[in-house]
Design a protein around this nucleic acid. Structure first.
Lengths: 206, 206
DNA sequence: TAGATTGTTAATCGATTAACAATC
DNA sequence: TAGATTGTTAATCGATTAACAATC
């Protein structure tokens, strides 16, 4: 495929473009330009054109990009035409919130399974999901073929659970635990620690 | 100050270093090296030394870095010696989870105030916080001097609430809503949209 | 046609890495 | 002393921007 040599920094911008295009589409806009899209997401028009040109010629001189068409292309590139089943590990407040989150709709993901290691939670329900024991994690995830997980366990357990996820064949982990994870190559991690986000901003404050 | 010309990409790595150092400290380790720290966070030793050297000489040849000392320096640099009061806007599942989150402890933040625009929620309690009306947001935040907010409202309301936060003097917004926000210069936003995180990984999957 | 905007090239700018003298 | 590791320099590598011919 055209996969392996496109810089990760470009890939990381595509979901932002996709989200903004969806937003425009919801407002019944038909076309946009690199200029307009760039203004919306805070990225230069030149960069947007350069990024998109890695994957094909999606625009027309003079008129710009057809929004519906570009959305389809970005969904194909990011492989979110399909819907990915996701496992949520850790049914604390954060895991609970993710299990109930409505924002995955139409963005390529669906929570399919939830886990916790607390015996008093296992077997109870969150939304429509029966909480499974972390002891069954490897078997259940292997069996279901799930490749994507969201990790919401305490920091102290996060690496151990990660090792289980890797063993189960998970290839993408969205990590809410406040700790750096080590994973083998071929497995990806994205970090969403709120304190890290906040500390990236306080530096700039007087 | 030594502030204004250090690249943001360096600043964005410092909280990662700080988190890892705290972790080492919790295990009663006294010193570390750029090598060891780098292995832990997945960053080259050279880059860590280069990053830190922007702010001073914190290490010793032959022995590396004293962990406690380096933690103190990073906390000063990132301005998290002090504790920042934070407002949480939107008491849905996510806002609820953040209001109860224990992970801000010792990382420089404390939830101080929570808001929702739903009249049936206003006045009720989440943890020890009485939910305030979004109508009082500007007044309350101005009065309290809060400079940091976490935004957990639906996408459709996020820009309007952001404008209120800016009006109230907030300078740092951690945005959980799935939308790009526009803010004046001098105000910073960090994005934590879970779908974006997931879509940044699916590209690499077969 | 005239105006607008793409895709792409070359130039610029910035970030990372390798290497090593200094020194604990 | 011998070994280890820093802080820094110069070289390399990569990303962004400006500019414009092509063309809708």
């Amino acid at each position: 495929m055209n996969n392996l040599d496109i810089p990760d920094i470009i890939i990381s911008r595509l979901p932002i473009y996709l989200r903004a295009l969806r937003h425009m589409q919801a407002q019944h806009t038909q076309t946009t330009s690199s200029q307009e899209l760039g203004a919306r997401v805070g990225i230069s028009a030149a960069q947007i054109r350069k990024d998109l040109s890695q994957f094909g010629e999606f625009g027309k001189q003079g008129t710009g990009y057809n929004i519906g068409f570009l959305i389809d292309k970005l969904r194909e590139i990011l492989k979110v035409v399909q819907v990915w089943d996701v496992a949520v590990i850790g049914m604390g407040d954060m895991g609970h919130a993710l299990a109930r989150y409505q924002g995955f709709k139409d963005r390529g993901f669906r929570v399919a399974m939830v886990f916790d290691n607390n015996p008093s939670k296992v077997g109870t329900k969150v939304e429509s999901f029966v909480i499974r024991s972390t002891q069954d994690l490897v078997t259940s995830i292997k069996q279901s073929g799930i490749k994507v997980a969201m990790l919401c366990v305490p920091a102290a357990e996060a690496q151990d659970v990660t090792d289980l996820l890797v063993e189960a064949g998970v290839k993408a982990i969205l990590n809410y635990a406040p700790i750096s994870l080590s994973v083998p190559s071929g497995v990806r991690v994205q970090y969403l620690d709120p304190s890290i986000g906040l500390q990236r901003m306080t530096y700039y404050m007087e």
